[in-house]
Design a protein around this nucleic acid. Structure first.
Ligand SMILES: [Mn+2]
Ligand SMILES: [Mn+2]
Ligand SMILES: [Zn+2]
Ligand SMILES: [Zn+2]
Lengths: 140, 140
DNA sequence: GATAAGAATTGGACTCTGTCTAACTCCGGC
DNA sequence: GCCGGAGTTAGACAGAGTCCAATTCTTATC
């Protein structure tokens, strides 16, 4: 957890702590994710980062998001076939996904228990588990 | 369950039973999915259906897969950010997903129990639940 | 503080999945 | 057999994500 200090200076330290050279662009991208603490698509990150002055390219946003995922700083959420969301919450958790509005909500994994899963296929090791509960507006 | 009769004649009856006019193209697409009983992407369906003679367009494959999903004949599996898979198994079940090879394996939902899920967000109703266990080759 | 070499960034072309449209073909009911 | 609506089609189009060669930063060293 990176506490609630979303200052650029602190974000730079967090990046260094993950072995990532803190560039202006990377700090802005981290700031977008952690200050909003929301599930953002690459396009949304690009828009937020360039709100005041255009200063970060699409290529860098994609490069950086991939780097952050590989470093365990953020997590990918695959719920929508048309785009990936990036999640600054890396605690074990699951998601509600509203198939009509696209809204994504966290579910604390600590409160959920899953039993009866079969053994992993032979020679395979777990790399993660996703639980997605798709919801929609109740029809009146 | 549509038993194990994957003849064109029987598939036509299955489609009628779902309120779908059985055209030549739709029967071939259903045949591709049910005779293989595999998780196939739209591209794979297109290739299989046109293996012998080109006779079905990309647009029809997409139209038909969407129709089949809406009719409950097949189910979408969203595990890969780059493409949707279509699943002829509509029994409640979950998936192993090999993030390296792309291989998808079914997990019977009846044997898995999930407890402690929070209430749905207010005014929302469940539309489905996906459980995806991402696996990879064990590093020697 | 200047220097240098590797790391990071960039615009834009490109790929791939999926959608759309307007013309055409098919099909069942008469 | 005719007709009208349902289904199909080629190909243009859209949007997410990748790639590349040229340029600009970052940082270690002096
Ligand atoms: Mn990021
Ligand atoms: Mn289908
Ligand atoms: Zn989340
Ligand atoms: Zn399946």
């Amino acid at each position: 957890m990176m506490n609630t200090d979303y200052s650029r200076a602190n974000l730079a330290e967090v990046l260094r702590g993950h072995g990532i050279t803190p560039t202006h662009q990377r700090i802005e991208i981290a700031h977008a994710l952690f200050s909003k603490m929301a599930h953002l698509s690459a396009d949304q990150v690009l828009a937020i980062v360039n709100e005041r002055h255009a200063e970060t390219s699409k290529a860098t946003v994609y490069n950086t998001l991939k780097l952050f995922v590989e470093s365990g700083l953020v997590r990918e959420v695959i719920v929508d076939p048309s785009k990936v969301f990036f999640d600054p919450n890396t605690d074990p958790h699951h998601h509600f996904y509203d198939i009509e509005t696209g809204e994504i909500t966290d579910i604390d994994a600590a409160k959920v228990s899953i039993a009866g899963l079969p053994d992993l296929p032979a020679g395979k090791v777990a790399a993660g588990m996703d639980v997605i509960i798709r919801v929609k507006r109740a029809t009146a």
